Amino acid sequence: MESRNFKLDTEWSMIHYPEKPNGFGILVVGDERHFVNNKGSFWTQNEGKRSLLNMWKHEGYTVFYSNLYGRHWGSKKAVDLAMSLCCHIIRNEILNNSFHVVAEGMGALVALKLFSQSDIKIRSLVLINPVFSLTGHLEQEKENKFFYKKLIAELEKAYEMDIFQLKEKLKCEEVASKLKPDIPVKIIHVLSGSRAYKQSKILKNLSDKWEKERLPVSISYVLPEKKLQVGSQTVQFFTKHEQVL
């Protein structure tokens, strides 16, 4: 069996099995285009994602993910479901119970909140073009009225509150400050599009902060034409942090 689709809560999830398992699992938390249904997922239909998925499977990794209610933007219910998925995998699969996590874009908002959960162990974290701050993301999108209006509608749906309440809530939260000294983090920033260049400025400020705090964070910048390097970079990073079982 190469893969299996199943439901948790109301959401479809998917797990991919390697031909020769190495005993380690990868939780994937996708970006805005990510989806899972009863037949497949964004990772099986998109050529670039499928190539990355196949590389991980070839290296022996079991890969799993959930639809997470669509455009969740780091909502509590998305974090809770990601937790439930990890617990389901631990109960039903023969894997090391300390997972690698790969999160892209808004998926970083969920992945970083998993740090505070005691029920699962994160072995390492890879962030690809991450969104670290919803407040900062809202400010970025203000320049384009259409996308800004669309983003607000998605946020209100995901958090089940109006944007004014949400902005007050966000003032009390700073996800990027929740990195931990015992969990290695690799950030891969693909420099494609104006949003990516704006995010690189935010990343530069954060990296200065992490360096002062001596947190185990490494950052790689990748040009669009070199995107295929992402797969080998992630595998090298995972392998480096599998010495201790």
Rank of each mutant, 00 (worst) to 15 (best):
E160L: 03
Q229I: 04
T234H: 03
L125F: 06
E2G: 05
K113N: 13
A82D: 09
I15E: 01
L109W: 01
L138P: 04
V244C: 09
E104C: 07
K49I: 10
K227L: 06
L215Q: 00
V175G: 02
D208Y: 09
M14I: 15
F42Y: 15
V235D: 03
F237C: 03
H34V: 07
P18Y: 04
M1L: 11
Y148P: 00
I15V: 15
L53G: 06
K169V: 08
L215N: 00
W43R: 13
S124L: 04
L203P: 10
F6V: 07
I89Q: 07
M14A: 06
V175S: 10
L81H: 12
L68Y: 14
F64N: 03
M55N: 13
K20T: 12
L27T: 02
N38E: 15
H241F: 15
V131R: 02
I187V: 15
L170Y: 07
K180D: 02
H58V: 04
R123I: 08
H100Y: 10
Q140L: 15
E139I: 15
E225P: 02
P224K: 10
N5K: 06
I163F: 00
V175M: 06
I89P: 09
F146G: 01
L166W: 00
W12G: 06
F237L: 02
V101W: 01
H88P: 06
F164I: 12
Y221N: 11
P184F: 07
K201Q: 13
P130A: 00
E93Y: 05
S116G: 05
N22A: 06
E104T: 12
N38G: 13
N38P: 06
K57S: 01
I163T: 00
I152K: 00
K121L: 11
Q117D: 10
N92A: 04
L112C: 04
L155S: 00
L151K: 11
H100P: 12
E213H: 09
Y17Q: 12
H137N: 14
S133Q: 08
G193V: 04
K240T: 15
H34E: 08
S3G: 04
G107F: 01
S84A: 15
K113I: 04
K57H: 01
L215K: 04
F146E: 14
L68V: 06
F42R: 14
I26C: 11
H100M: 10
G193N: 06
E173F: 06
W43N: 09
R91T: 11
E2I: 05
F115I: 07
Y221M: 12
N5G: 00
M83H: 07
S192F: 08
E11G: 05
A196D: 06
H16W: 14
K178R: 11
G74R: 02
Y221G: 11
L134N: 06
E160R: 05
N129D: 07
V244K: 14
L52W: 13
V190C: 07
K240D: 08
F115R: 06
S84Y: 07
T234Y: 03
W73E: 01
G136Q: 09
A108D: 01
K201F: 13
A111F: 11
A108C: 11
